[in-house]
Design a protein around this nucleic acid. Structure first.
Lengths: 217, 217
DNA sequence: CGCCACTATTTTGTATACAAAACAAAAAGT
DNA sequence: ACTTTTTGTTTTGTATACAAAATAGTGGCG
């Protein structure tokens, strides 16, 4: 997974990869659904080659999975697997929060706050799509506050993997607002600049997120 | 190395990917070195297509990097980047050790001990190649002791990324023996089944590993 | 001798073609 | 009617061909 660079010219493969990540993240593609190479090729107005490349990379990232029977599928996880994935994500997010709390600077603070403002705006507007993006940006801001792009990439990768499952818990406007409120507590914990507080705050947030996701899946 | 499944038939792309991972992990390919598609293709007796797929997946995993100027390169990291990568790895490994210490069972214990026995054997024999493999197996055994394959995959991914840099510190027989001894302390800490002891033990091991790697790079 | 334009060669990305394998379906035999 | 064999279709993996971009040369001209 790469840090989003301003690439003026994008290869078709990258374009397709990005589009698929977005669709999967938003839950537009159901877990377990098969991705047809030729179908995608015609849909994106390309040939199978770049499609194949995109799929290959996404499987390498764990977003897709290949060979359950045949073909490439949106990763579908059992309750147990989901639990394991969330455990791993839990650890990473907690570590990110801890490190971020130790390295907070004015810029990071303002980025996190700005992202949270967008979350609140989208939540009160009931804009589901917008909230999903704002939510991702919010967590990304925390990741970046670690000052460690590798931690950030790893965390983002898990966020993408679990995207389809977390997306299901965001349906009503109340869901969005609840999530945004949870963010606020998290911000307070991280801004306390105390390692344990930040870490535990994130663990609480993640546990809640996990419980909700399990209910919806 | 992936969970070794009995794959009777392996696609050329997978074969190439595995071979490259091995070579890079052993340090046979220098960081920063360019990988020529056609060169690899002829070398593996295949066409560019499967080579391309392998390279694409390896870049997605961060083992390779593309577009510094042009082409695909073995990832080369600055001191600062290396430091960040090791910090991330540090966190993951510590989390693995902690979780493993809480879930230790007889099977996991024996696997770890068996792997360590191989490490000692390779070290006393001065078998560098063998030690690299045994060492990887040893850490893999710890990862697997977490009972969480996703944690294990993530840890393994970082291990691969840092492979070329860690490999440089294993030159003399004394290096191997020192590493094996360090393993022994780590085992004691993990087998204590105390979270903090296990976690700190791994942090110590990783810090040592990091210091050595920095010296060599 | 140095600089710029222009050409040639390499290299990447994509499209298409083809072979082999997997799956589905129909036909034959018991 | 049920199994097994055979045939046909879809799908995957790989090879090759081609176009566009990038780098490296080459030569002219100051």
């Amino acid at each position: 997974m790469k840090a989003s660079k301003p690439e003026p010219k994008q290869s078709a493969a990258q374009r397709i990869e990005q589009a698929l990540v977005l669709e999967i993240g938003a839950g537009a593609l159901e877990p377990g659904q098969r991705l047809d190479e030729v179908g995608l090729a015609t849909r994106f107005g390309a040939s199978r080659t770049p499609v194949r490349e995109a799929l290959s990379r996404l499987t390498a990232q764990g977003v897709l999975v290949q060979g359950e029977r045949r073909g490439v599928f949106v990763a579908r996880y059992s309750r147990e697997e989901l639990s394991q994935i969330f455990e791993a994500m839990h650890e990473i997010e907690a570590a990110c929060a801890r490190i971020a709390s130790q390295r907070l600077n004015l810029l990071a603070r303002s980025e996190i706050e700005a992202a949270q403002a967008n979350c609140i705006a989208a939540a009160t507007a009931g804009d589901r799509e917008g909230y999903l993006l704002a939510n991702e940006a919010f967590h990304l801001a925390i990741y970046r506050a670690t000052g460690n792009p590798y931690m950030a990439d790893m965390a983002l990768e898990f966020r993408r993997r679990t995207g389809p499952f977390r997306a299901k818990k965001f349906v009503t406007k109340a869901d969005l607002i609840a999530s945004a409120n949870s963010h606020q507590n998290l911000i307070n914990d991280i801004f306390s600049e105390d390692s344990a507080t930040a870490s535990n705050g994130m663990r609480t947030h993640m546990t809640q997120s996990f419980v909700d996701a399990l209910k919806a899946n």
